[in-house]
Structure formats: C-alpha cells, structure tokens
C-alpha cells in the first residue's frame, strides 16, 4: 500500500512537472514568426517570406502559498501572537505583490483572533519586531518571478480552552493588481486590462485562483522547550579562543511548562562535523549534576560516534518540575 501511494505521488509529481513552466517567458516578450517558401518555376528557384506575425506574452499572475509548519502547532490558552509560517512564491511571469488574508475555518473547537503578519528577514527564524518587520497589506512589496518570501502569520489564542482543542486557520494570497481593480475573488482567466508588466494585460492563473493553505493550532497544556548555550571555551594556551584543539562545554536546558506530564521527552543534539564529544564514546555526559557515560545502553545518556549525536532520554517529565540540565565537553577538530 505504501509503495502504491509513493508511486502515485511520483506519477502526479511528474505530471505537475510537465505542466509547470517556472515563471515562464517574461510578460511583455514578443514572439515573432515568419514562414518562408521556396519553389521552382521553369528551372528557377524562387523564395518568398510571409509577413511576420507577432504575439506579446501577457502577464500571468500566479502564486503559491504553502504552510511551512510540520504538523499541528502547539499553543497555550491564552497565548498572544502564536505564529504560523508560510512560504509565498510568485510562480507568474511578472513582478507582482500579494495581499495576505487569514480566516478561521469552521468545524473545530475554537477560532483565533488574527494578529500581525510579519515578513521574515530571510533567516527563517521568528523575530517579531526586531529582524522581522510587519507585512504591510496596504502596500506589500513586489516579488520577482520565481522568487519567494517567508511570512509569519500570528494569531491570539483565546483563554479557557481545553487540552487538545484545535483551530484550523486558512491563509491565502491575493494579487494586488486584482485587488486594486476591486476583484477580491478572481477566477482563473479573469483579466485586468493593461495592468500587467510592460502594459500587458494581467491574466489570473489557476494557481493564483487556488492560492491558499491551512495550518492547525492545537492547545497543549504542556510545552517543552530546549535551549542550547556555550558554558565555556578553554584552549590549550590557557585562554578561551575557539581554535582547533580547544574544548567547548555546551549546556542544554530542557524546560517543561503548563500542566500535566510530558511523555517520552528526549533531548537530541547532532553536533557539526567540526565538533566531537571529548573522548568519544568513552566521554562523559552530565545530566542534572550526575556524570553519565557516553557509551550506549547503560544509562539515559548516549553518544553515537557514527552520527556525532548526543542523546539523552529524559522520559516522563511533569510540568513545572525543575529544568533538566545536560552538559558535555566537545573538542574543536
């Protein structure tokens, strides 16, 4: 069954690829065609051309908007400014700006109050008000053909919700050209004359007519967070330069807030190639002040030399209990 599904998706993917032209030929491009003929009369060869026929490629407005959250997004009740991540891609052949709309989908346990939309600064990290600026729906920035932006759509979550209550949110993108023409729900094939790039007509594409995606908030009475920090750097010269051979001590802090128990909590830290656990599988991983061996199977702490990953299985953690502090020493290669 799994195999059948994967084959089907491969087939669909290839169909889609056949019909996809990326941004395609730019709006305003002329396509000219001249036919020629050669023929013989009485042994003489004569040639002639047709008059050229020319078409100008019009602006096809197309856009996709795709949720970037994997699975449901956990929120508290209440919570201010809970964020959903979306990618908006201009799949048309001209420059276009898009208005982002957020609506509640019915049939679930609660509705959210739409709040600010932020434009990611390019690092994919949510930094409202600092690196990420508010997305201005009254004057959205133009996106070039084939270019993408990442946006953070934020919502306020109401008070007094139950654990596992869900709210489905739909986020859509509308062409500014069509919005400016008072067309708020255009169909594929609808046109705004002369409003495209290079004074072409703006033609609404089928992707634009279906440019929406949904994401689901789920109320989770329990929240697990992990924070990684460098505790110290010690080099072989007695100073603290991060040079090859220096030892870097990392601390992971796992915090469980809310109410109830978080089950099967596991902290995983895949180290970069430039860092290895000191002494490898013979090394030490300290959990809440107790030194544990890095070798697999004898305790909750493990270092896998093949994947260069530190794993600590914390198991069931009750919300509000003391933070779990994991620390280990690495060597810069």
């Amino acid at each position: 069954m799994n195999k059948l599904i994967s084959w089907t998706s491969v087939f669909l993917a290839s169909l889609f690829a056949m019909q996809s032209y990326g941004a395609g030929t730019g709006a305003g491009t002329s396509i000219s065609n001249t036919a020629s003929v050669s023929y013989e009369v009485g042994g003489a060869t004569i040639t002639a051309n047709s008059d050229p026929v020319t078409i100008t490629v019009q602006e096809l407005i197309n856009v996709t908007i795709i949720s970037q959250d994997s699975g449901n997004v956990s929120v508290s009740s209440p919570e201010t400014g809970a964020e959903l991540k979306f990618q908006v891609t201009n799949t048309g052949n001209g420059n276009e700006a898009f208005i982002i709309n957020q609506v509640n989908i019915g049939g679930d346990e609660f509705d959210v109050t739409p709040s600010t939309i932020y434009l990611d600064d390019g690092d994919g990290v949510y930094e409202p008000g600092t690196d990420d600026v508010a997305y201005d729906n009254s004057a959205p920035s133009t996106i070039a053909p084939d270019a993408s932006i990442t946006i953070w759509v934020t919502s306020d979550i109401p008070d007094s919700l139950n654990n596992n209550d869900t709210s489905e949110v739909q986020v859509s993108a509308l062409s500014k050209t069509f919005s400016d023409d008072s067309q708020t729900n255009p169909d594929a094939g609808d046109v705004v004359s002369g409003a495209g790039d290079s004074s072409t007509d703006a033609v609404y594409g089928s992707a634009a007519a279906n440019a929406d995606d949904t994401a689901i908030f789920v109320v989770s009475a329990i929240q697990v967070t992990i924070v990684k920090a460098i505790s110290s750097i010690t080099d072989q010269f007695g100073t603290s330069q991060p040079v090859p051979g220096a030892e870097v001590v990392y601390t992971l802090t796992v915090t469980v807030t809310g109410t109830g128990d978080a089950e099967s909590v596991t902290a995983t830290d895949p180290l970069p190639n430039e860092l290895l656990l000191k002494d490898g599988v013979a090394g030490i991983i300290t959990v809440d002040g107790v030194d544990l061996t890095a070798v697999s199977g004898d305790d909750i702490a493990t270092y896998d030399a093949n994947t260069n990953t530190v794993t600590v299985v914390l198991g069931t953690v009750t919300a509000g209990s003391a933070d779990s502090i994991i620390s280990f020493t690495t060597e810069i290669q």
């Binding site: 065609n33 001249t34 036919a35 020629s36 023929y39 013989e40 490629v57």
Partner: peptide, 19 residues
C-alpha cells in the same frame, strides 16, 4: 497567384523563440 504552376514547393518555419 501567378500564371504558371509552381513545383517543388518547400515551406519552412523556424519554431519561434520562447516556444
């Protein structure tokens, strides 16, 4: 449109750019 038959007629058309 002439007044004699035309033989060996060959029509040519390049596939236009961007198509």
């Amino acid at each position: 449109k002439g007044d004699k038959a035309a033989d060996d007629i060959v029509l040519n058309n390049p596939v236009p750019e961007n198509t």
